[in-house]
Each structure stands twice: as structure tokens, then as C-alpha cells.
């Protein structure tokens, strides 16, 4: 385990609203007056030698705290972490020195193949021990604490012997990592697996949370006509997810909060307005605590 104080959330992101950076918003982010106080990037998009994306990132990093969010480490994978990919990540984190690094409780690589999706894993003693080994390795190589994000689930594994909150609690205890609490993912999974999202939030180890994600989902149905929610990051955060976020803030206090919008990316004012909504909720909680 990495030697960190038990209350260190593993990040220096401000307890304010951020957005996932999209290149088409570069000018407006750089020059405009807006509620966005920090930015998140997908690590893999910047694992290149040079060119415009890196130049934009260098410029943004001078003005905003940056959160590096990995999508390709395959922490939940059966096979060992790809040492080449870990080295690419180490290089990025070393030169950028971001305010935070996070990854997913999922797998995406098998053998030498990468599948560009966050695939699910059962929650058992065996997978717990593997995930913890991988997180230990990442934290050792990067020399910093990482945050682990809860997934969106569409199905369950018959072989699971513990629930997700128990699993995440055990990971935090064994590795000392922090958590990235994706409130939309909690809402999506709770609907799809018919669990109580509020109970999930109530049992969650909020003291380990270093960042919150909000984002939009799509609505579909399974073959029995039951509602099936799909984590799409392609629209506004739904009202019931904002309500769950408000509940999360009352349980865990203010946290750096990110709006994720990765497909059908809107014009900047729409994204900035979503960030403004999160900022207003954080502000009102600050005000409540002060009074």
C-alpha cells in the first residue's frame, strides 16, 4: 500500500465543477467567463508524441487543474497490466503532474487485444485480489494515489459473492486508493439490477471519494420490457440523477464534480450550463455549512 494519510483523497482538484475537455471547446474554455474550474482528459488521447492535442493540453494545464482519467489500463483484467501502457501513463503523469489520476473498475484488454469498452467483472475474492494487485502496481509505478470509478452495469454475474459497495470498500482498505463516485453509473446500475440507488449511496465510503462524475444516459428496454438504462454520456444529466447527486452531497460533503459529455458533444454554452448547475449545488452546500 502506498503511504498516504487516511484522509488524503488522492487529489488536489478544487471542490468545484469541471468538464471533460473536448478540442472544439478550446477557445471558449481558454477565454470565456464560465463556471468551469477544472478539466478532465482521457489519458489515452494524449499518449502521442506531439501535435495540436498535446499543445492544447499544455496550454490548458497552465490555467486549470487537470484530472487524468484513464480508460485503457484494464484494472479488472485477468491478465497482467500491459507494461508498455503503464509506461505511457507514467510518462504522461510525470510531465503533466495532474491534480488527479483515475481509472475504472472494468477490463478492456485481453491477451494482446484492446476492445475500447469498459467490460464488467464479477465481485469475488479472486477478482478482488487481482484488482488490488493491479491497483498496487499502478500506485507504485505512478508514485501517487489513484481513484477507482464504479461502473455502469447492465447484467449481473451469478458467481459474484459480494455487492459492489462491499467490493469497493475492500479495495480501498487493501490498497489505500481513493474512489471516483459516478452518480449516473449508480443510478443506471440500480435501475438495471433493480437495486436501491439511495441505499447504495448511503452505504458508500464517502471519506474515500476524491471526485464525482455526472452524465447523461439513454433509456431502452430489455426483452421482457423492463427499463434498461444505457450509460451514453450523450445528453444532459437526468433530473433523478441530479436528485441523487444532491443526496450524495448531503452524505459526503462537497466534492470536485465533473460533467461527462462524450458523444453528440454540444456547443460550449450547453455544457457550461450543466457545469453551472453542479456549481450552484456545490455553492449552496458551502453556504449551508458556513451559516
Amino acid at each position: 500500500m502506498l503511504d498516504t494519510s487516511p484522509n488524503d483523497p488522492g487529489t488536489t482538484l478544487p471542490h468545484a465543477a469541471g468538464v471533460g475537455f473536448k478540442p472544439q471547446h478550446f477557445s471558449e474554455i481558454s477565454t470565456g467567463d464560465h463556471p468551469v474550474k477544472w478539466l478532465e482528459i482521457h489519458a489515452e488521447n494524449y499518449m502521442v508524441e506531439g501535435g495540436r492535442p498535446l499543445a492544447q493540453l499544455r496550454a490548458l494545464a497552465e490555467r486549470f487543474p487537470i484530472s487524468v482519467h484513464g480508460v485503457g489500463l484494464s484494472i479488472g483484467g485477468e491478465t497482467r497490466l500491459d507494461p508498455d501502457h503503464l509506461a505511457r501513463l507514467k510518462h504522461l503523469v510525470t510531465w503533466l503532474n495532474p491534480a488527479s489520476f483515475s481509472e475504472h473498475l472494468a477490463w478492456s484488454t485481453h491477451g494482446s487485444d484492446y476492445f475500447n469498452d469498459l467490460l464488467p467483472l464479477p465481485y469475488t475474492e479472486a477478482t478482488l485480489s487481482r484488482v488490488c494487485d493491479h491497483i498496487d502496481e499502478v500506485q507504485d509505478v505512478l508514485g501517487r494515489r489513484m481513484l477507482l470509478e464504479n461502473p455502469s452495469s447492465y447484467l449481473a454475474f451469478e458467481e459474484s459473492t459480494m455487492d459492489e459497495v462491499e467490493f469497493l470498500r475492500a479495495v480501498v482498505k487493501r490498497t489505500g486508493c481513493g474512489l471516483l463516485l459516478d452518480v449516473n453509473n449508480v443510478f443506471v446500475s440500480a435501475n438495471n439490477l433493480r437495486l436501491d440507488a439511495y441505499d447504495y449511496i448511503d452505504r458508500y465510503p464517502h471519506e474515500a471519494v476524491g471526485e464525482i462524475h455526472l452524465g447523461g444516459h439513454d433509456e431502452d428496454e430489455d426483452e421482457m420490457g423492463a427499463p434498461l438504462l444505457i450509460d451514453s454520456h450523450g445528453r444532459e444529466t437526468a433530473d433523478p440523477v441530479w436528485a441523487l447527486y444532491a443526496h450524495t452531497l448531503t452524505k459526503g460533503g462537497t466534492k470536485p464534480t465533473l460533467i461527462e459529455w462524450d458523444t453528440d458533444v454540444p456547443d460550449w454554452p450547453v455544457l457550461a450550463a450543466e457545469a453551472g448547475r453542479a456549481a450552484a449545488m456545490l455553492e449552496s452546500l458551502f453556504a449551508e455549512v458556513r451559516s
Binding site: 447492465y154 447484467l155 451469478e158 439490477l193 430489455d222 426483452e223 421482457m224 434498461l228
Partner: peptide
């Protein structure tokens, strides 16, 4: 096998 819905039925459309 082993991928299930909340009812314990095999997950098909969910997969």
C-alpha cells in the same frame, strides 16, 4: 452462462 438479469434469468439483450 452465468450472466443474469435481476430475476436470475440469462441476460440476452443486456449482453
Amino acid at each position: 452462462d452465468g450472466l443474469i438479469t435481476p430475476d436470475g434469468r440469462p441476460a440476452s439483450k443486456r449482453f
